[in-house]
Every structure is written in structure tokens, then in C-alpha cells.
Amino acid sequence: MFPDDVKAELEEIRGRFPGHDKAAMVPVLRRVQEHKGWLDQATQAWVAEFLGVTAIEVHEVVTFYPMLYDKPVGRNVLHVCRTLSCEVCGARELWAHLEQKLGIKRGETTPDGRFTLKAAECLASCGTAPVLLINNERHENLSLEQVDKLLEAAR
């Protein structure tokens, strides 16, 4: 299911928890998702076997965390902070701009599959608001022009 280098990395991660393979659950799911985009049933089943647990144990974890996707996402995932310090320092305008520009609401994916727009809670960049992550890459102190450039640059 995975190329050798990814497999080797997954084994290294599992090795960080001697005697407790299951503890590698979240880091392994994160790494797998990085490779596959999202966590479909087959992938979850693979992780279950890799960690020696049942599929439901994996599913319980996957469905808890906002940053683990059990549904397909666009090629680029945007996480825009919506929490207070950002909201009062430009996030409202940023949200309006993004929704208008992409023609989607929070939680949705553009019809061409290029962008998914997600709300994030406080990203620990409150002093450099507003902030968004594009594919987990952090961009702070954003102006609307900068956002447009970032969107253009995203494949």
C-alpha cells in the first residue's frame, strides 16, 4: 500500500513506543494521510493491521480528530483560524474574501477539487493574526493580496 520509504518511516514511528504499538496510532495516521490525502476504509484497515488493533479502534480515533479526514478533501486544504484574537484582527474579512473568491462555504470543497476550506480553532498565532494553514504550512499576518497570491501558487 505504501512505497518503501514511507513504510520505513512508519516503522520508525512505531518504534518510538516500545511494547505499545497502538500508541503510534495518531502519528502513523498523520503520516499515512500525508501520503494518501485522506483516510479511506482500506487505509484504516491497513493501519489497524500495522498496529495490531481492530478496525473499530482506528475508526474511533479517526472520527475524533479534526485533522484526520475520513472523507475526501481537495488537493489543497485551507485551515483558517476563526477564534477570537483572529476574528477581531482581520479574520472576518479573510473569511468573507475566501468564501467569495472560492465560491464555497466553510467545510466545502471547490467543484474542481482544488481547495477545501476548513475552519480551525486557535492556531497559536494570535499575535500575528489573521492566520491560515495551507496544507499545514503556516501563513501569518495575512493581507487579502497575499492570500490571493498563495491561492494562485497552489496547484
Binding site: 518510538r16 495518531v26 502519528p27 480551525a120 480553532e121
Partner: peptide, 10 residues
């Protein structure tokens, strides 16, 4: 010492 990560839950 090892590093481990969460997945977006406060």
C-alpha cells in the same frame, strides 16, 4: 526522548 503528535483537538 521521543516526539509524538496530536491531530487538532484542544
Amino acid at each position: 526522548v521521543s516526539l509524538t503528535v496530536g491531530a487538532g483537538a484542544y
